[in-house]
Amino acid sequence: MTTLLATERIKLFTTRSPWWSTLLALGMTIGFAALVALNHSGGPLTVRHSQFGAQFGLMIVTVMAALAITTEYRFATIRATFQAVPHRTAVLLAKTAVVAVLAAVIGEVAAFGSWITARVIDGGPEMNLVTGGDWRAVAGLGLVYAVGAVIAVAVGTLIRQSAGAISVLLIWPLLVENLVQLIPRVGEDIHNWMPFTAVSRFTDSTVPGPIGPWASLAYFAGVAAVLLVAALAVAEKRDA
């Protein structure tokens, strides 16, 4: 497995998209933190405010993660990959792990970078990491990004096309999850159990929901696991 992890690490970092995705995600999150801190008025700046760009970072990370697998199909290097290592499940798990670790690192750097930036600009006592909620809002971001990356790799493996995978991955959390709550009667219940909505309760304790923050993260991870298993099963059966 270490061999496969090393292989996937080489593959990921010898293309350009992870690099600019990382830069873009960090620029967006930290940039927004600075923007918010500079323009803040009315009430003290809080830890939550510093994480304004978290959603942008997450979207960029999911795009990066999806591209890590769809470009393999796009350039048919997936065939070279499966030729080198015919155990497809092992290869894809290694890829998922490498991408998730990168996503986690981006998440942590983005979150702490944003927090420090905001603090430097306008640091009051509300900017200290005190409660569990504060810590989850900042240090928890890496976990969310990592699980989000797993979902993206799974969706990318299932769809195999960059355009399709990215559309689904962006339209789903940004549009579908928000709009369903407008459906009369059932909308609110469905909305509560939408994966990205659920995980927002992990990083933002002010969002009300049916389950607690850690349970919400576990639920998000459960969704990712189900998608990943489906993707692995499909990739194993499908002609490469």
């Binding site: 942008f56 979207m59 795009v63 591209l67």
Partner: peptide, 23 residues
């Protein structure tokens, strides 16, 4: 494709609504 779609989605669905949250 990937870049264009990502820009369009993030712009219309994320950037525009989130901008109003800037103080």
């Amino acid at each position: 494709s990937a870049g264009a779609i990502a820009v369009l989605m993030i712009w219309t669905q994320l950037a525009e609504p989130l901008v109003q949250l800037i103080p």
